[in-house]
């Protein structure tokens, strides 16, 4: 990075740190913060969509759809996350490849399952063997997002399902009395009001999601916790220009600060959101807002 870094042993302390903290390994560490933030930014809305679909399905009038919604939340919530991450991602990947195999190589004679191996034709591999490494990484990242979305979507579905039931019956009856159809009642009365009831549960989920990202390394995506361990661990002077002892404590303290800031920021946003959603609601929060406006 800096010119004076060519001989780290001769450096005085400040410059040593400047060089140490700007080597390639640290750059990968800083980049992984971006990975985590992008993952959160994509996963949260996708999981919310899964949750909304799950909750809507769970209160459908059509029995098979209701089963689907209830089954989704019950099964996913019941399976440990780590099992999901070890098994499900590989299964998902194989499912995609199997489908592509059926389409692209209809005259393939060999069986796909040979003992333990899962073999599809070259054209069906996802990503292709010839693809550059960044495509492989993006694909892994995409699988991670999908898995996170499915897992957290199930929890969100349960929260939203409860929130939908918490909207006062009188509201829905009034809507019906005004001549709204069921669909209109759902979109115009139920959904706008349920968010307030869903918010505490959803904010919990968000904070759990923020801290669940170390599971990423199981999928080959290198996140901040992986790099903190890797960088903080003891390195033999033979293999590095910057030998140091076990510094994991300092790296993890750094992560602690990062996570605290993230949590603090989330809390502020959520508090504002709660206040906003409380307006006009027949709740204590709504009442307080009304009085404040009057005073």
């Amino acid at each position: 990075m800096f010119e004076f870094c060519s001989d780290p042993e001769a450096l005085e302390r400040l410059r040593w740190f400047a060089c140490y903290l700007s080597n390639g390994k640290h750059m990968a560490f800083y980049a992984s913060f971006g990975t985590v933030m992008v993952l959160l930014a994509i996963t949260a809305p996708v999981a919310m969509a899964f949750g909304f679909a799950g909750a809507s399905a769970a209160r459908s009038r059509i029995l098979p759809i209701r089963w689907l919604g209830k089954g989704y939340t019950a099964i996913v919530r019941g399976v440990p996350d780590i099992v999901f991450f070890l098994f499900f991602v590989i299964a998902l990947d194989q499912a995609f490849e199997w489908m592509r195999h059926q389409i692209k190589c209809p005259d393939w004679a060999d069986p796909i399952r040979q003992g333990n191996d899962f073999i599809v034709c070259g054209a069906a591999k996802l990503p292709l063997n010839t693809a550059p490494q960044w495509i492989h990484e993006t694909y892994g990242f995409f699988l991670a997002v999908l898995t996170f979305a499915i897992v957290f979507g199930a929890f969100a579905a349960n929260v939203l399902f409860g929130a939908m039931r918490a909207v006062p019956m009188a509201q829905l009856e009034t809507a019906a009395a005004y001549g709204m159809s069921e669909r209109q009642t759902f979109w115009r009365v139920l959904v706008p009001q349920m968010w307030l009831y869903a918010l505490p549960g959803l904010s919990n989920l968000w904070l759990i999601l923020v801290k669940a990202t170390p599971l990423l390394f199981l999928l080959g995506v290198e996140d901040i916790v992986y790099w903190a361990r890797e960088l903080g661990g003891f390195v033999n002077p033979r293999f590095t220009d910057y030998p140091h002892g076990d510094w994991r404590l300092f790296y993890f303290l750094g992560l602690l600060v990062f996570y605290l800031f993230l949590t603090w920021g989330s809390e502020r946003v959520l508090a504002r959101l709660t206040k906003r959603l409380s307006h006009g609601q027949a709740t204590m929060g709504g009442e307080a807002a009304r009085r404040e406006a009057q005073a």
Binding site: N23, G24, K25, M27, A28, N236, R238, F239, T240
Partner: peptide, 10 residues
């Protein structure tokens, strides 16, 4: 290390 490890350059 020394079999396989990530060097300073990552």
């Amino acid at each position: 290390a020394p079999w396989n490890f990530v060097n300073d350059a990552g």
